[in-house]
Every structure is written in structure tokens, then in C-alpha cells.
């Protein structure tokens, strides 16, 4: 029967240096595992074809003053509203201090095109689509938009005035490519 010393030789020498190799190997395995996780997480981000749909052209020539349309950008609803002078005046009359999310109407529209209010139709509370873009829908207490889910009221500059929503309706990036065409995105 073999003795332990025959089978197991030279245990003591160089233990420290050897520990380093073990730690290095395990560390490399750890780094590798993290590196593999990155693409597995990243794959859930919007894919290239989804990102490519991020511009939308809208023809606004048919929208009469006082009217609004609902269109879509990145599959989200977008409200395009042709404000009348009274609505612009109402929005301008509100002191910024009274606003939950202080912004002037000029900040929310393009210079020279102040009558065009373009916002996402996504309530900043929990993402419902507010009413008020279509004919006959409730526009809430402030004549803008009204979200029926939890009762958020937006004014004629689509700013939050009452209800649980924390922010104004988001103005997406857009530009006028001509007098009648708006490119969003």
C-alpha cells in the first residue's frame, strides 16, 4: 500500500506564486463572463430597423386653425395642433411660477410658427394617450389635452396644469422642411 508521501510530493514550495496564477485564471474567467453578458443585454435595445424608422414626415396643410391631428412617430402618437390666437394668448398669460414644469409656449414651438404645437400624445404620468386631439373630445379644464386614465389636465401649450402627471407633454425633435411639411425625428 502506497504511503501518502509517495503519492503527494513537494507541497510547500512556491505556494504564493502559484496562488497568483489561480487568481489570474479565475479573474480572466470573470472578465470573460462579463464581456459575454454585454451583447446578451445589448440585444434587447432597439434594433437597427427600429431605429431607422425614427423620422416621420407630416403634411400639415389640411389642419385648420383650432384643429389637431393625431399621427405617429416611432409608433408613438404625436399631436399636431394648429393653435388659434386666443389659445396662444391664454398660454402666454399664465405666470411661469404657477407651472409645475415651467416652460413658455415660445420654448415649445418654433419661432415664426408659434401656432404649430407639436407634442407626443403620451401622458407623462403613466403613458396613456390624452384626449383632445380629435374633434369633440374633452380638452380638460385648461383647453388643451385631458388624460382620462388618471385625470391629468394640460393647457393650450400642452403643459401640465392639474392632475398627477409630473411633466409637460414632450415636444419631439422636429423641423419644418417646408411651410406645409414637418419632419419629426
Amino acid at each position: 500500500m502506497a504511503s501518502e508521501s509517495e503519492l503527494n510530493a513537494g507541497i510547500e514550495d512556491g505556494v504564493r506564486r502559484r496562488d497568483f496564477i489561480n487568481i489570474a485564471a479565475v479573474s480572466f474567467a470573470g472578465v470573460g463572463a462579463v464581456a459575454v453578458v454585454l451583447p446578451l443585454v445589448n440585444q434587447m435595445n432597439p434594433s437597427a430597423d427600429v431605429l431607422a424608422l425614427s423620422t416621420t414626415e407630416i403634411d400639415i396643410s389640411a389642419i385648420q386653425p383650432g384643429q389637431a391631428i393625431k399621427t405617429s412617430w416611432r409608433k408613438q402618437p404625436v399631436f399636431v395642433r394648429n393653435l388659434v390666437a386666443k389659445e396662444i394668448a391664454e398660454a402666454k398669460a399664465v405666470p411661469l411660477g404657477d407651472l409645475r414644469d415651467p416652460e413658455t409656449i415660445d420654448q415649445r414651438t418654433k419661432a415664426g410658427k408659434e401656432n404649430w404645437l407639436i407634442t407626443l400624445g403620451v401622458c407623462t404620468h403613466l403613458g396613456c394617450v390624452p384626449l383632445g386631439a380629435a374633434e369633440g373630445e374633452s380638452r380638460g379644464d385648461f383647453g388643451g389635452y385631458f388624460c382620462p386614465c388618471h385625470g391629468s389636465h394640460y393647457d393650450t401649450a400642452a403643459r401640465i396644469r392639474k392632475g398627477p402627471a409630473p411633466k409637460n407633454l414632450v415636444v419631439p425633435p422636429y423641423e419644418f422642411t417646408s411651410d406645409t411639411v414637418v419632419t419629426i425625428g
Binding site: 451583447p39 446578451l40 445589448n42 440585444q43 434587447m44 435595445n45 434594433s47 437597427a48 430597423d49 427600429v50
Partner: peptide, 27 residues
Amino acid sequence: MHYAANAGVAFNSVEHIMRDVNAGWFI
């Protein structure tokens, strides 16, 4: 998460993974 098990779109959904999904070709 990206594949669609429908005879009409299955082939293209695999190519969608190969071309458009982030790191999809690798996976």
C-alpha cells in the same frame, strides 16, 4: 426574443436577427 414562429415570417425573422438586432449575428 426576436424569432417569430410563423411560416410567413420565420425565415425573415432569422435574417432580421442576423442583420438588425444588436449582436444578433453573434448570438
